[in-house]
């Protein structure tokens, strides 16, 4: 019979405290505890409440990583408290840990936040199967394994909000729908049973649309279910082009401009790309462009060093393209 050794070590917790009804500003309280290698972050939250301060507030429910209730931040890392092992946290961050809510500016009481923005955005993307149901079917509606695979695990989302509140664009722009809402939109757009004709266009017209993602991959690392929301945002971009629903705007021209540039030079022509993306709007870049030019940072189109064997690249662009604009 194998035995497991349970190690114990001293950990200092710096915990975010705030009561919106009483406090003008949040503050941090220190708790020092012996932590065993068996514990998860939620055990620590429970011990703070049960052993130190009964007024300490946080959300918890299933304790099995499926209800999505207990997402918080530890040293800036978004995590499901019931799933995250203390051993891993100590290994990454050492013995001084900072416990904070998912979003400090949305805190109501300690780790509990007002998640209304998350739910409002989620609701807007029509996050359900939109289809005409035959109430008296004569045969099964079969979804093949290959068709089910196209969801790419987007259906595993537990709406914990980890990716949403890890997104730096959500943090500073209320107009951005956020990775969770987009992943939900993709989940139903990719479902063969869904007949919604307008979701894709709607999603692109809500708030600031689908193009403001900064491609930081914070959501990919944050998701406790490894759904990789940014990949789904990319797929929505691809779907817009493939369906012919992509409108001409700065973002779409910017994406298409890469293909044009590669076709012409193999490499990018940075100046021409900005011009093609912005059209007349390019004038706002002139002051910075002049500074860059004076420092030898702008190469004119005729000065671009094209890729060797450019004919190969042009042949591949011709034979491998799958999108049209």
């Amino acid at each position: 019979m194998s035995t497991t050794t349970i190690n114990t070590q001293k950990v200092n917790f710096n915990v975010f405290r705030f009561n919106a009804d009483e406090d003008y500003l949040p503050y941090y309280e220190d708790y020092s505890m012996d932590v065993t290698s068996e514990e998860v972050v939620l055990d620590i939250l429970n011990r703070i409440k049960w052993d130190h301060d009964g007024s300490f507030s946080y959300r918890r429910s299933c304790r099995h990583g499926i209800c999505g209730t207990c997402a918080i931040k530890v040293n800036g890392k978004v995590t499901l408290a019931c799933k995250e092992s203390m051993t891993d946290m100590i290994e990454v961050f050492g013995n001084d840990l900072v416990i904070e809510p998912l979003s400090k500016k949305r805190a109501i009481k300690d780790l509990i936040i007002d998640k209304a923005d998350f739910w409002e955005k989620h609701e807007q993307v029509t996050p359900y199967l939109d289809t005409e149901i035959d109430e008296n079917p004569t045969a099964e509606n079969i979804v093949t394994p290959a068709q089910a695979d196209t969801l790419d695990e987007a259906d595993l989302c537990i709406q914990c909000g980890a990716c949403h509140y890890a997104c730096p664009v959500v943090e500073i722009s209320d107009a951005f729908m956020g990775p969770a809402a987009f992943a939900a939109a993709y989940r139903f757009e990719a479902d063969v049973r869904d007949d919604n004709e307008s979701r894709l266009t709607d999603v692109n017209q809500m708030g600031s649309g689908v193009w403001d993602c900064v491609k930081c991959f914070e959501c990919a690392d944050a998701c406790p279910k490894e759904i990789n929301p940014i990949e789904k945002i990319g797929k929505l971009h691809n779907m817009l082009f493939q369906s012919g629903k992509a409108e001409s705007n700065i973002a779409t021209r910017h994406a298409v401009g890469f293909e044009k540039s590669i076709r012409k030079n193999g490499v990018l022509d940075e100046g021409s790309l900005v011009l093609y993306s912005e059209l007349a709007g390019v004038v706002k870049h002139v002051p910075v462009a002049l500074k860059m030019f004076s420092k030898g940072k702008i190469v004119p189109p005729w000065g671009i060093i094209k890729s060797d064997n450019l004919d190969e690249i042009q042949k591949l662009v011709k034979s491998s393209s799958t999108a049209k604009f």
Partner: peptide
């Protein structure tokens, strides 16, 4: 690698994922 093309910079990937893989 003087033969190399642009990597697509995550933007070509938004337009044409397969082409970006090939390149």
């Amino acid at each position: 690698l003087t033969e190399a093309s642009c990597c697509g910079a995550s933007h070509l990937q938004d337009y044409d994922d397969f082409l970006s893989l090939v390149l």
